[in-house]
């Protein structure tokens, strides 16, 4: 019964996300970004001097599209989840699916599938356009791996935003906390490391556990990015998984509360 309910929830949430009033706009924006990125890079590619100056590769283009998608995914996720709570969608879902673990897991899985698709599509599309335009790569396999890894990291970040939104429940809080964790906190730690030498080692160690740092390392495929090693890459993915598990546990703790999602 558990798997039937889980499949049912995943399917229902995916279909809702793609229906009017779902996450269609975000998905379309991601596709537009991918086309624009690919076309933009094609223009650059046809200007050899600019190409040499910028040192562009196929993976870079896929990565650029993916990170553009990350911003869209963050905003889209934050809006979607908080709107679900405010408009009573979650209250209704809890009524029709009275099994909290399956409902929670189904919703998270559906969003994971959606963010993977939304991230992969722009990455592949813009990479394909770039390849067609003759922008040089480092081999087809490595380029494809880089694109897939960047897209997967983006969807993981999207999933983290989703879980944060379930915990925080307010769009403004979600965006603030996401920005703080992804950008501001790593900058603060880096500044401390540079300005206060006695704590530099501790700051560097702390920095390794920060989400912003982990995400940057998680997209640096060894052999594709200078200085990227297999251990840093693997460590980053372990770290990202731990962040997801921790956020998932906290989100589930909130989600299972009786009054959660009801007004």
């Amino acid at each position: 019964m558990t798997s039937t309910i889980l499949r049912r929830v995943v399917a229902a949430e995916l279909r809702r996300a793609l229906a009017v009033g779902g996450a269609r706009v975000g998905a379309i924006v991601c596709l537009v970004i991918s086309v624009l990125t690919g076309v933009g890079m094609t223009v650059v590619a046809r200007t050899p001097s600019l190409q040499e100056t910028l040192n562009l590769r196929v993976a870079d283009i896929g990565g650029a599209a993916t990170f553009a998608a990350l911003i869209v995914v963050t905003v889209m996720t934050s809006n979607y989840v908080t709107r679900d709570i405010e408009q009573g969608v979650l209250a209704g879902a809890k009524l029709w699916v009275p099994w909290t673990p399956q409902l929670f897991l189904g919703r998270v899985l559906a969003w994971g599938i959606l963010t993977v698709s939304v991230s992969l599509a722009p990455a592949f599309l813009s990479a394909a356009i770039a390849m067609g335009a003759g922008i040089p790569g480092r081999g087809l396999v490595l380029d494809l791996v880089s694109v897939v890894v960047a897209a997967t990291a983006t969807s993981a970040a999207g999933l983290l935003v989703y879980l944060a939104a379930l915990i925080l429940r307010k769009g403004a809080y979600v965006v603030t906390v996401s920005l703080f964790l992804l950008i501001i906190l790593p900058l603060i730690v880096a500044a401390i490391s540079a300005m206060v030498p006695p704590v530099a080692d501790a700051a560097r160690a702390a920095s390794a556990a920060l989400l912003g740092t982990i995400l940057v390392q998680a997209v640096a495929v060894p052999g594709s990015v200078e200085g990227a090693t297999a251990s840093t890459f693997a460590g980053a993915w372990v770290g990202l998984t731990l962040w997801l598990l921790a956020a998932g546990a906290l989100a589930y703790r909130s989600f299972r509360q009786e009054s959660y999602g009801t007004r």
Binding site: R16, A19, G21, R83, Q87, G88
Partner: peptide, 27 residues
């Protein structure tokens, strides 16, 4: 089959989209 108030009917969805969602959840 339960209805506990119009506050659980989301404003951004269409009528048919909402019912489709409920039908999907219920199987």
């Amino acid at each position: 089959g339960a209805f506990l108030g119009h506050a659980t009917v989301p404003a951004t969805m269409t009528g048919v989209g909402y019912l489709n969602y409920v039908a999907d959840l219920l199987g």
